[in-house]
């Protein structure tokens, strides 16, 4: 794998490291896009998932529409929204949020669905209001699966955020497209490696938070 050593050399080259178009700046940008997309997706998907999980209504609709959303080709969405709204971050962000929503949604409602109904009944028998059941019983118990959903959403978004550069935004996709279009494969591979490193870091963060929540649930 000659490309690999060349890609590593490209990353290590100080000439590529700094500046607004450097490895550091583009990596931060990429991370920022990823976090923003997952946060926006969470704002939409978590309340909706809790609503579905708690009431048990609309599950079929949610499953069907998130299935369709998973099938949405991100490149097509980026292109379509780009054509309508122009260059910049909006088009890729719409596409990335659409990509992240199904996983977060599934994590949110599956987390609540997986709770033993007897636990919820017991809470109700104790006189808890529906809101209290949701916030004090279902949300904490559903947390591990929600975090699992956020984890897979993040992994998908971090790998796909490279498409932002297709319509004038930044991120590690800049290196990727430039490398692709000029057959500079070491540069392209370097971009891919940086994306994988970002993914590894994010995975580590999720691994730790999953362990922390698991420990909390057990000590309570």
């Amino acid at each position: 794998m000659n490309y690999f050593s060349q890609a590593i050399a490209w990353i290590a080259d100080p000439a590529n490291a700094s500046g607004p178009n450097g490895v550091w700046a583009r990596s931060w940008e990429h991370l920022w896009y990823t976090i923003l997309a997952v946060v926006l997706a969470s704002v939409i998907a978590i309340p909706l998932g809790y609503l579905v999980g708690h009431t048990g209504r609309g599950r079929g609709l949610v499953v069907a529409s998130s299935g369709a959303a998973r099938a949405l080709p991100t490149l097509g969405v980026v292109t379509l929204v780009g054509l309508v709204l122009g260059v910049g971050l909006i088009a890729p962000m719409v596409a990335l949020v659409l990509l992240a929503v199904p996983s977060v949604l599934a994590g949110a409602y599956a987390g609540i669905e997986a709770i033993d109904p007897r636990t919820v009944d017991a809470a109700r028998a104790m006189g808890m209001s529906e809101w209290q059941i949701l916030t004090r019983v279902e949300m904490p118990l559903g947390l591990p699966l929600l975090i699992g959903g956020l984890r897979s959403a993040t992994l998908q978004v971090v790998a796909t955020a490279t498409l932002a550069a297709y319509v004038g935004a930044g991120g590690l996709g800049r290196f990727l497209f430039l490398g692709l279009k000029t057959q500079d494969y070491p540069q392209m591979l370097a971009a891919a490696l940086l994306v994988v490193v970002l993914a590894l870091i994010l995975e580590g963060v999720f691994e730790i938070s999953e362990r922390v929540t698991a420990r909390r649930l057990h000590t309570h």
Binding site: A159, T162, L176, G179, L180, M188, A192, V195, E203
Partner: peptide, 19 residues
């Protein structure tokens, strides 16, 4: 398997031919 999924698809499409 998880890491494999984190590889952006475009570079994989381009690098695989040389492999």
């Amino acid at each position: 398997a998880g890491l494999l999924y984190a590889i952006p698809s475009l570079p994989l499409f381009v690098v695989l031919p040389s492999v």
